[in-house]
């Protein structure tokens, strides 16, 4: 993501722990594609008011679909690298930032810790 490069080193360190974690969406969401952007809309579950809304580009949408409680952050980063032809360093960094942002917003939650 743009404008957050200074935070990367700390997050990268954190990634050593987080990359083994699987994340799942909190509640049920629908994914809509509107004028070329992917918008996620809360469907079901005791989520808060919609005072903020998330919309993704194709990379974000690709990752969003992998928050299935089965795929680790590390595996997601690998999948991003293969799908979008970027370096592993870039895909790990950006995937991690994406995870941190959505977890902070409370729309994904850690699922099952994997063996590292």
């Amino acid at each position: 993501m743009p404008g957050v490069g200074a935070e990367m080193s700390d997050q990268h360190i954190e990634a050593v722990g987080i990359s083994a974690i699987r994340f799942a969406r909190k509640g049920e969401f629908a994914t809509r594609t509107i004028t070329g952007e992917v918008v996620i809309v809360p469907v079901r579950g005791r989520i808060g008011d919609l005072d903020a809304i998330y919309h993704f580009n194709d990379v974000g949408a690709f990752i969003w679909n992998l928050f299935d409680g089965k795929t680790s952050v590390h595996d997601i980063a690998q999948a991003v690298r293969e799908e979008f032809d970027v370096t592993l360093e870039d895909s790990e960094r950006d995937t991690l930032e994406f995870v941190v942002a959505l977890e902070s917003a409370g729309i994904i939650v850690p699922s099952i810790a994997m063996d590292s």
Binding site: T35, D51, Y54, H55, N57, V59, I63, A105
Partner: peptide, 19 residues
């Protein structure tokens, strides 16, 4: 290289821009 992938907006900004 960074991969921009998510945008979070206030609902009002999102709604206005999308409309």
């Amino acid at each position: 290289m960074s991969i921009p992938m998510a945008v979070t907006q206030s609902y009002n900004d999102f709604s206005s821009n999308l409309h």
